[in-house]
């Protein structure tokens, strides 16, 4: 094709209901096919599209539509982000810890009519807090393995953590493990035989610290 497509040439006037007219105006293609072609990044190249001035105009229109869509989304997101925070508060006010309470972990009391328990959720919570208090550590998932419902049965704890790059990982893991043993002993009668710490994700740290500085 040697013919240049004028930038201001109007997109073919088609009837939204008539596929034949649409294809006739787009070198045998449909808008849907062209849209999929754009989604694929125009690969593999299809000469029957690339060499058709009508298709080129339609593709340009689709690209413009996409740009406007993005700026509309951007505008809407900005507007939503500027709202006051009350809606966040009302969501948080309407959810309950009960959904993630987990199992009941018995606490010892001599009376036969006493049933004292700490929930698995509460223990996971204090394990998280313990890790978060250490510098440059963020605790992810915490899991208690074993029968926590029966006093004296040995259990293990598994913890995912993010440790920031400048930290000495074995040292941090050891400090975290000791702190977690102490806090479990403080709040439960569990017999913990091991705390397995998995360092899961270091890559987020540079970004996180950079953004953290922006906030301060």
């Amino acid at each position: 094709m040697t013919e240049l497509t004028p930038a201001d040439r109007r997109f073919v006037e088609f009837d939204v209901d008539d596929t034949d007219r649409e294809q006739a105006g787009l070198n045998g293609h449909t808008i849907e096919q062209l849209s999929d072609y754009l989604d694929r990044g125009r690969v593999p190249a299809d000469p029957s599209i690339d060499d058709s001035p009508d298709c080129e105009i339609a593709l340009r229109g689709l690209e413009r539509l996409r740009r406007v869509q993005l700026s509309l989304l951007d505008r809407d997101l900005k507007r939503e982000s500027l709202r006051d925070d009350n809606w966040v508060a009302s969501i948080l006010d309407n959810i309950t810890l009960e959904a993630h309470a987990g199992r009941d972990i018995p606490l010892i009391h001599p009376s036969p009519t006493a049933r004292l328990v700490v929930t698995e959720g509460a223990v996971r919570g204090i394990l998280r807090e313990t890790g978060d208090k250490l510098q440059n550590v963020l605790v992810g998932r915490c899991a208690l393995f074993g029968d926590v419902g029966v006093p004296g049965v040995p259990i293990t704890i598994s913890v995912d953590v993010t440790v920031f790059p400048e930290e000495n990982i074995p040292l941090v893991a050891d400090r975290l493990r000791q702190a977690m043993y102490a806090v479990v002993a403080q709040h439960t009668n569990l017999v913990v035989t091991a705390i397995d710490i998995t360092v899961t994700d270091l890559s987020i740290a540079p970004q996180a610290s950079a953004q953290g500085q922006e906030h301060t």
Binding site: L97, G125, G140
Partner: peptide, 10 residues
């Protein structure tokens, strides 16, 4: 991932 894991833990 971290946030979803923590939220799932309560």
């Amino acid at each position: 991932q971290m946030l979803a894991d923590r939220a799932a833990d309560g």
